[in-house]
Design a protein around this nucleic acid. Structure first.
Ligand SMILES: [Mn+2]
Ligand SMILES: [Mn+2]
Ligand SMILES: [Mn+2]
Ligand SMILES: [Mn+2]
Lengths: 219, 219
DNA sequence: ATTTATTTTTAGACTAATCTAAAATTATTT
DNA sequence: AAATAATTTTAGATTAGTCTAAAAATAAAT
């Protein structure tokens, strides 16, 4: 079928695609996959031959229907495995991404559906990312971050936009985990940092860098 | 670390090694891995450079301590994942091998140990093969097969030597699954086929081809 | 509208793993 | 012990994926 490498390219293109812009740039894919633009061009040609992407020289790429289906099924796999690792094997949310990067490429529709069932059809992964259903429908969060809240506004933490271990560890240390209620007490004009209270109780200080990566559902 | 391919070679050499004979032949590895002898020679050299096998030209190979540890950990992984697929995801014993071939290469000691714990430290996989413990100790079954039983002797099915879907399916259809009690009623001299009863009840006919691949604990 | 900068593609080389065909070695027969 | 057969290794090619450096195309600045 498709190699791990091809699958990673499809996933990257999917991640970088957005409804408004039409083509994903070679450089952005190279950046995402930590590789060189020339390598990306080569692979794009290959995926284009396989009808998994639409490609016109110098004009960027986009996924075909076929390519998108594959990309989404990989994302589905990735997120289901992350749930498994956290819920069943007691991993922490900052430990599961790399393992899921490998597990996601084991392609078995049967295994995926059984896993989904075993996990009782979770809607979100440990980072709050939505798990595509078996028909490939994904329902993304509205993109409101803590940084968008104004003074005295409240919200619930529903996800993160940044998945690094250091960020996730930090969030956990100040109890800003999924489901936490946060209220903005004050915003410092100078650096846009916030002082906020979590679950009504404590007072924490959060940099703009941190607040803009925390996805919030407004209350 | 080591590539999937290297790991598969180590596993093959481990499987083909036996306490009595000292070197595994190039051809037998090629046969096991469905590849050509020349490819095997190339890979052996590479593994030798990495000190994972001992190799002298034309004299066959054997695993070093380092190589053996890796091979056993892959086998451990393989068999634990097979248990997971059968016990937790309700796969049948004939459906899990190929998936485990992929899952076994995801190397995370932490995941393996957590999985082992989650599965409540199983001793055997769905085919009766022993699961190496975390220190690499493997306790193999004594190699008695149904074909070794004489008339009127009884035994318990504890494993299979052949893992093909067709064989496993066939065994299941005549209730010769792990734990079944079998009694040899009659042996036909001509083709060494047997008529036998399973769990005291039924009467089945088993070819020599089938009986010699069924591992038995004598009663 | 040119010039300059940035992005993207091509050309050519490299590594891992594989193969076929030929050569070298070891094993088996006569 | 020589001849033949079987096994194993080498030589040389191939494919996937990657890289650097140079060329081509597009975008931005003057
Ligand atoms: Mn992830
Ligand atoms: Mn995630
Ligand atoms: Mn197996
Ligand atoms: Mn097994």
């Amino acid at each position: 079928m498709n190699s791990f490498t091809e699958e990673n390219y499809l996933k990257a293109i999917f991640k970088l695609s957005s409804p408004d812009t039409d083509g994903v740039s070679t450089n952005s894919i190279a950046e995402e996959l930590q590789t060189k633009a020339s390598s990306v061009t080569d692979m794009i040609k290959k995926l284009s031959d396989k009808k998994l992407v639409k490609y016109k020289k110098y004009q960027g790429v986009s996924l075909t229907k076929k390519g998108k289906i594959i990309a989404i099924s990989i994302v589905r796999n990735h997120r289901l495995w992350e749930v498994f690792l956290v819920e069943k094997l007691n991993f922490k949310w900052d430990e599961v991404h790399d393992l899921a990067e490998d597990l996601e490429h084991i392609n078995s529709e049967k295994m995926t559906e059984r896993l989904d069932e075993f996990l009782e059809f979770p809607k979100y992964d440990p980072h709050g990312d939505p798990i595509p259903d078996k028909n490939g429908n994904v329902y993304n969060h509205k993109d409101v971050t803590l940084a968008d809240l104004k003074q005295n506004e409240k919200g619930i933490v529903v996800g993160v936009k940044e998945h690094s271990k250091s960020y996730l560890n930090y969030l956990e240390s100040i109890n800003l985990v999924l489901g936490a209620e946060i209220k903005v007490d004050d915003i410092i004009d100078f650096d846009r940092s916030m002082s906020a209270s979590v679950n009504g109780k404590k007072l924490v200080n959060v940099s703009h860098q941190a607040s803009k990566n925390l996805i919030i559902k407004k209350l």
